[in-house]
Design a protein around this nucleic acid. Sequence first.
DNA 1: CGCCTATTTGATCTGATTCAAACAATGTGG
DNA 2: CCACATTGTTTGAATCAGATCAAATAGGCG
Lengths: 245, 245
Amino acid sequence: MHVSQTPEPLIRKLESITDLTEAERAALLHLPLSVRSLKADADIVREQDRPSQCCLVLEGFLFRYKILPAGKRQIFSFHIAGDIPDLQSLHLTVMDHNVATLVPSTVGFIPHHAIRELCLAQPRLAGILWRDTLIDAAVFREWMAGIGRRSAYARIAHLFCELYLRLKAVGLIKDLTFELPITQAGIADALGLSTVHVNRSLQELRAANLISLRGGRLTVRSWERLQQAGEFDPTYLHLDVKAAA
Amino acid sequence: MHVSQTPEPLIRKLESITDLTEAERAALLHLPLSVRSLKADADIVREQDRPSQCCLVLEGFLFRYKILPAGKRQIFSFHIAGDIPDLQSLHLTVMDHNVATLVPSTVGFIPHHAIRELCLAQPRLAGILWRDTLIDAAVFREWMAGIGRRSAYARIAHLFCELYLRLKAVGLIKDLTFELPITQAGIADALGLSTVHVNRSLQELRAANLISLRGGRLTVRSWERLQQAGEFDPTYLHLDVKAAA
DNA sequence: CGCCTATTTGATCTGATTCAAACAATGTGG
DNA sequence: CCACATTGTTTGAATCAGATCAAATAGGCG
């Protein structure tokens, strides 16, 4: 399968939210992109770094995380094609967490100055990118609510609902099924659980026939009941509106 | 005590981060502001709302929260003078959570269009505001890590460290002491704990002589050991740098 | 095949919740 | 200025969701 060497996944993502003018699309296409293929489990940016570029996911799966002083890991988010997980580094000098690959992935690096120029030349795009980081924050809040106030069972169901919709938005769902390259330890660290408990809750989800999951492929068996189990309300993803910045 | 009727708390906050030009300061001062005094526990914006203005805290204490389907509450953040807790509504049409007062507070409403015009006229200010929402997100991540991976005791210590630094940045600390108008139930809902457990952990913090707390006033007894207890590293608050957008 | 990593299972333990009730504070109206 | 109501804090006891420890399976893959 051919992997894009252009910011095209970003364009596709933005166009799922808003319509782009010819000028805007052209400006995006002219972003300088230095493409790199990375193996699984490779750090891309680390805590304390002061990046001068952002990374756009072209293919694969990234995640953001932090290791706490006590040695525990917290995963903050998962990222797919079209995402710019470290867009924040455009305005926050020092990284306060890490970005890494979950599986072998292709990313494109875009220099900060190029993005800044883009924002000046195309203020509406600036708003759309800003908006993207705001959705990021909305997802953090939702995860926080899950970790703070939902059962393990509900948290996991919720995560699957979120991934399902986000992957669907970029066309990575077929037949209610998607690649889930996240280990149970990864799910545990994302949701504030232990591996053992994740394993047991997954078995419950399977037993309740909400999902099936083997070999890194997840199939939604009942979207209705999965959402219900996860108290899932997609509002926070702000996928809906084509009203723009 | 006289409460500002102008965006001056915002300016003070921004100037703690970066230097403003005369033009920028003037532009901020000319923001139309409709000031309102609110009693404690009043919702300012609600989930599902589609605001056409943002609210700037002039005085008091606000918080953001959400009620989950199961009836549980998650608090996402606390806000003090100079903050614009719902700045996100500038780019996200629908509110996915609520903003409310914790105590009687004075807020100033600024129409979205005025902020948009400001951003176009002063692109550097746009970056600074964007940056502000990114710090918001960084705080969410840190809370997520705490709720997911830290003990109750550490979470509470961490929260107090954060409030201490943020209040200090706007000059609301004197003699290691500050107003903490948050009930134990509030702390519980912010940190994913039960009220009872918060109460017991607070007693431990007092017993360890890290803090003293009565009548809504908190005094830090040992900043060193409080930070240590909370695994607190202030990097994520991005208070430091005067390097700008 | 053999190694390494992920999943699964079992047994035990504990941090934190829940329920229930007593006890301060703080405020309100008479 | 007191009596009452309301809201917040504290305490005790019982329980549980989820953690921890330890070991057995099961996949992948070079």
